[in-house]
């Protein structure tokens, strides 16, 4: 294959030239590739869908890590579900945390990412504060919820799409168990697709999370390789103070952290919770759709 054509939608697709294939594995029902593209650097695809590219992964990882971490202000214990490429971990360990647990379903994804996408983890898998658990994310939160262990201040669900290996991470039960793993003032965030093309995903998440958290909302950032404009991230917390901190507070926390970012800054943080009108509208669908199909 000299070109990669995404299979996410029927009527449109993005096509990437494959300049050099680094890794390809085909197991039953699963097709993983890591290849080089002149424009985007190394690209990882799973089952015909772009997962991450070196050129724009910073937008996704910075926004899914730094927004909840800096909003919380004192996040010490972090849980990452998924995120085998290591990019999320890389951003999380830049914070003065005590502990991070990452739950990845497949050790080989971690090994493969360290070898073929080294810039994503950038050594973060060596961090002594990391507890890497190879398990199904659903099993993990289910078992942890009743374990009596110290809960997490921030939970980041860095999953694949709702169809595929990550599908249990889009179920009611997963969200309920995850909430039980979260400290009272904790924040949970999840990747939530590109609503321009995937409005249903936004509505499904809203239904699942809004009953669990006193404050449930979305924020967004455009990730070019997730074709279709803004990507949304779901935000759930009972800590209403975390949702809209003062800009000056964020600025203070961010400068105290002393890290360089390429997308995140305190102004973007606040602004990312402002949603385009089409996204707001798709959260309140007209009811004459699904139920009244006939």
């Amino acid at each position: 294959m000299k070109h990669f054509k995404e299979t996410l939608y029927d009527a449109v697709c993005q096509e990437y030239r494959i300049d050099k294939m680094y890794f390809e594995s085909k197991t039953s029902h699963q097709h993983l590739m890591i290849f080089h593209n002149a424009q985007l650097g190394r690209v990882m695809t799973l089952d015909g869908i772009v997962q991450t590219t070196e050129a724009d992964e910073f937008i996704y990882h910075e926004m899914l890590a730094h927004v909840p971490m800096l909003a919380h202000g004192n996040a010490k214990r972090i849980l990452i579900i998924g995120g085998g490429d290591g990019g999320m971990l890389r951003e999380v360990v830049k914070h003065p945390i005590d502990h991070v647990t990452q739950v990845e379903i497949d050790q080989s994804v971690v090994d493969m990412a360290i070898e073929f996408l080294p810039k994503h983890s950038n050594g973060a898998y060596q961090d002594p504060r990391l507890n890497l658990v190879i398990d199904d994310g659903f099993n993990f939160v289910k078992n942890f919820a009743n374990s009596g262990e110290a809960k997490f201040d921030v939970i980041i669900s860095d999953s694949t799409d709702p169809i595929g290996p990550g599908e249990v991470l889009f179920t009611d039960d997963f969200y309920q168990y995850a909430k039980q793993c979260l400290a009272d003032d904790g924040v949970m965030v999840t990747q939530n697709g590109v609503p321009f093309f995937q409005a249903d995903e936004l509505q499904n998440t809203q239904q699942r999370m809004s009953s669990l958290y006193s404050d449930m909302r979305f924020y967004c950032a455009p990730v070019p390789s997730y074709y279709g404009g803004f990507m949304t991230f779901a935000w759930g917390t009972d800590n209403t103070g975390a949702s809209a901190p003062e800009l000056s507070v964020l600025q203070q926390r961010f400068s105290a952290l002393g890290i360089k970012t390429r997308y995140y800054n305190p102004a973007i943080h606040g602004a990312s919770f402002a949603l385009p009108q089409y996204v707001i509208d798709s959260l309140t669908p007209s009811t004459d759709n699904i139920e009244n199909g006939q």
Binding site: T7, Y9, I163, G164, E167, F197, D200, E201, I290, G293
Partner: peptide, 29 residues
């Protein structure tokens, strides 16, 4: 779901029951 993971985006139906099964996947197909 298996077909979507494989990357098929064109599906064939011939009745309303089958159409309703596709509602969850309507953005992709």
């Amino acid at each position: 779901r298996d077909a979507l993971r494989f990357g098929a985006t064109t599906f064939v139906v011939d009745n309303l029951y089958e159409l309703k099964k596709l509602v969850n996947y309507r953005s992709r197909i």
